Amino acid sequence: MEGTYDCILKWPFNHKITFCLLDQSGQNRHVIDSCRPDTRSNSFQRPRSEMNVAFGIPKFFSLPMVQQDNNNYVRDDTMFIKVIVDFDDLPEVILPYILNLNPGLPHHVQQYYIKQEIKRRQDAANVSASSPAVISINGCA
């Protein structure tokens, strides 16, 4: 949609977008799907009128599943969809962690926690990759 800051934004819009339908049952079975915009599409060009052509992920979550009684995604006629615009090319494996961050935290605090978690995971991967392999023959190491 047309906005106040369009004149200072970079066009066409080309950042990865992730849609997250939040599981309200506490089981963390969130529905997550990501896509990269087609920068040739009018949807991602600078708006020249009030609104560009709409964009979405057609098979993100089926309407009959949302309409089912007692589904995990609608409680008290309310569902939560979180949209993440990825300006930093975050790894896919970090998305569940991001979903569990308190959305009330200031953005810079969330970014700090995300960077710390990525570093923690990279450090853990480096430690396991550098550990010497132990080969066992007949139960003896």
Rank of each mutant, 00 (worst) to 15 (best):
I98Q: 00
N70G: 13
N126T: 15
Y112F: 01
P58S: 11
V93H: 12
G104A: 14
N52Q: 14
F19C: 07
L101S: 01
Y113L: 15
K59D: 08
W11V: 01
L9T: 11
Y112G: 00
D76K: 15
H30E: 03
S34G: 10
N28Q: 06
R121T: 04
N102P: 03
I94P: 00
S62E: 12
Q45Y: 05
L90W: 14
D69T: 10
A129P: 07
D69K: 15
S131N: 12
E92S: 14
V93M: 09
Y113P: 01
D77A: 13
D86S: 07
P132G: 15
N52D: 08
L21H: 02
L101I: 04
V109S: 01
G56P: 14
K59Q: 10
H30N: 02
Y113K: 09
R40E: 04
I118Y: 06
R48Q: 06
R40G: 04
V74E: 03
D88K: 11
T4P: 10
P37I: 03
V74F: 05
L95M: 15
E2F: 05
V127D: 10
N102I: 09
N138G: 04
A133P: 07
F13K: 03
S43D: 00
N72T: 12
Q24R: 09
Y113G: 03
T39F: 00
I81V: 13
I135P: 02
N138Y: 04
N28A: 04
I135F: 10
I118P: 00
K59T: 07
M79H: 00
T4G: 12
N72C: 11
N71D: 12
R29M: 06
F19R: 06
P12A: 09
C35M: 06
D88P: 01
Q110C: 03
P37G: 05
W11G: 00
S136N: 11
Q45P: 05
I137K: 09
T78M: 14
N102E: 12
N28Y: 00
R75L: 11
L90R: 15
N14D: 05
V66H: 08
A125E: 11
M1W: 09
I114Q: 00
V66P: 00
D69N: 12
I32A: 05
C140A: 09
I118W: 05
I81S: 09
V127E: 14
D6S: 08
A133E: 13
Y112D: 01
G3H: 10
T39W: 02
V93A: 09
C140T: 08
L22S: 04
I114L: 06
P12Q: 08
G26S: 05
Q110D: 01
L101Q: 01
A54I: 10
P58W: 02
V74K: 03
H107C: 05
D89A: 15
H15W: 02
Q67G: 13
N100M: 13
N71E: 12
P103C: 12
D6R: 05
C140N: 07
V83G: 13
D38S: 07
L9N: 10
I118L: 11
P96V: 13
F19K: 05
